[in-house]
Nucleic acid binder design. Structure first.
Lengths: 319, 319
DNA sequence: ATAGGTCTTTGACTTTTGTCAGCGTTCGTG
DNA sequence: CACGAACGCTGACAAAAGTCAAAGACCTAT
């Protein structure tokens, strides 16, 4: 520990745990109050000091309870679109990050997929000091029109949480099924994909199948290919892989050429946290939920209403 | 949720998660800034907002590493007695409380014993919002010369953590072995004692066997009885029960008349956090460590030095 | 040895936050 | 329905925290 880190720790301890004022801390440590203020800010930024707020505000809600019951989910958080005059688009990642942090336990292994949503989340993720946590990349890499590529995203989340980040050094999609299969069987990659089963928590969103969807924009698929997939029953995208409307892995060239977490394995992970920002992802989300990819859900108020209506419409048919 | 709680949550969210200033929050929620300040203080007090500082300052230390290695402990925290001009006696419970909170995971079941130390800890324990946590009482009740009796102590810790507190409705010591045995077999009590095996974490200190020790002061034993125990090999007290110098349960009238957690069960709990405030407890602590009752240890610097010296003195004999 | 760079520290100033008496509202009670 | 207690809210002031330019410390390369 550097000596300035030591001072920062001491300052943080005296200020936050003992409740001394900055000038009192300054007197204790024999440096100016201005310095103390600087150290404290750094301690907060680095995650030495953790300030967290319960996300109860978003989960304590009649609609959330109803959704949990109707869709058999473990927990639902609903982001209001009207009440607070905060920009709802900016609010979603903040809520998601807070929920994510709440779901992490010390020593956990956490899988993260990639997409606009996860990228946004990484970008505003607060710093924390979660020693013993490992963040693993669920899907292969690809070029991206954002600041972070998938591997950078995993690394960034790991960095901010003071956790270990493990990258998957393979492309998301290969040009031939043969190569994809060979690569999946490479010991390094195979072990890494298998180790995803040890995760206690995964974080992802669901991708749409429109011609301007994420996979298309990142160049993994052409608009035509995507459209063809849509016509042959594609319902959404999970960790780079296409699923049908019931959430089953779709047997298609793209999926066969894909290096990503086994969907069967993902389903067995205890906490599967899904964040959906855009209302346009209703159909894909329904598919993901039906496929068992969701145990913890963060959605907008209007999306929650639509989901509930959908399940209530189906309920009579079942019961 | 009361509407004022709702406002408090919103204020806390906007202030701590979005980083708005109090006046901005006030404008958002259409109330005066002074009220916001009040809400925020309440949110902190209640544990809606959690501010925690890493205890690294106390564990990141050469001596701590050495102790962990020498005594095969999972983690050691050392409270300095000189560096910070904070009263060391007051510092110990603060460190212990922070460590305790760090060791808790969501959903855990936690056993707490009772003694001066645990009482001090309960008294300064910060408020937190650990839903799904259960705090169980490890040992029976007895009158106490402190503010809290064992059951109140459990309840108080539970209350502050927003966790469920489960009390053991039995006295610590009974007048006859027969009655103690019968009571232990009462379904309610038996189940509760058995359920201690499900704990992921226990918190306790170790008791001394001097004639002014805790058990004597609380009236569980007379000074003469305690002295006799000392002469027949008693080394310390764990959860109200006397152990010998090697940390084994001592077969004595007191132990046979005692209602408390089975020591065998305690040894199997993964995280066994021990806090020792007084340097006079050196011998009992040695017994507790030898008996396998400690995996996480919080001690003073001088106690750490004595422990290390003791183990280093023994090492040559073993190796 | 020294010039030039980076990182710390500080005093002085500004902004933000904490506090508290007093006012208004609500709610339970006689 | 009137009364008082309890609670929430506010404005004004006091206290504490944040900020920043400038000075100083420290390191490195010439």
């Amino acid at each position: 520990m550097r000596s300035t880190d030591q001072i920062m720790h001491k300052a943080a301890w005296l200020y936050y745990m003992h409740g001394l004022r900055q000038d009192e801390v300054a007197k204790q440590l024999n440096i100016s109050r201005a310095s103390i203020a600087t150290y404290l800010r750094r301690a907060r930024e680095i995650g030495i000091v953790n300030i967290s707020t319960s996300t109860q505000l978003f989960s304590d809600d009649v609609l959330a309870r109803k959704l949990e019951d109707a869709l058999s989910l473990d927990a639902v958080w609903i982001v209001p679109e009207d009440r607070l005059a905060i920009d709802p688009a900016a609010e979603m990642p903040v809520v998601a990050a807070a929920v994510f942090l709440e779901l992490i336990n010390k020593g956990d292994r956490i899988g993260v997929a990639w997409g606009r949503t996860v990228y946004h989340l990484a970008d505003i993720m607060p710093y924390a000091d979660l020693q013993g946590v490992t963040v693993v990349q669920l899907c292969g890499n690809l070029g991206a029109p954002y600041n972070y590529r998938p591997d950078q995203c995993t690394t960034e989340i790991g960095r901010r949480l003071n956790a270990e980040g493990i990258n998957l050094y393979a492309p998301l999609v290969l040009s031939s099924e043969r190569l994809a299969s060979d690569l999946r069987n490479e010991p390094v990659i195979r072990e890494q994909l298998a180790s995803i089963a040890d995760c206690q928590l995964v974080l992802y969103s669901v991708g749409g199948i429109e011609s301007d969807s994420h996979l298309v924009r990142c160049g993994a698929l052409t608009a035509e290919e995507m459209q063809a997939l849509g016509e042959s029953g594609a319902g959404g995208v999970i960790a780079g892989q296409v699923i049908d409307h019931e959430g089953r892995w779709l047997d298609c060239p793209h999926n066969r050429r894909c290096i990503s977490a086994d969907l069967e394995i993902i389903r067995t992970i205890p906490k599967r946290m899904m964040v959906v920002e855009e209302d346009s992802k209703f159909q894909p989300l329904v598919a993901a939920i039906k496929g068992g990819f969701v145990s913890h859900l963060v959605v907008t108020h209007s999306m929650a209403l639509r989901l509930l209506a959908r399940w209530e419409a189906e309920a009579p048919r079942r019961g």
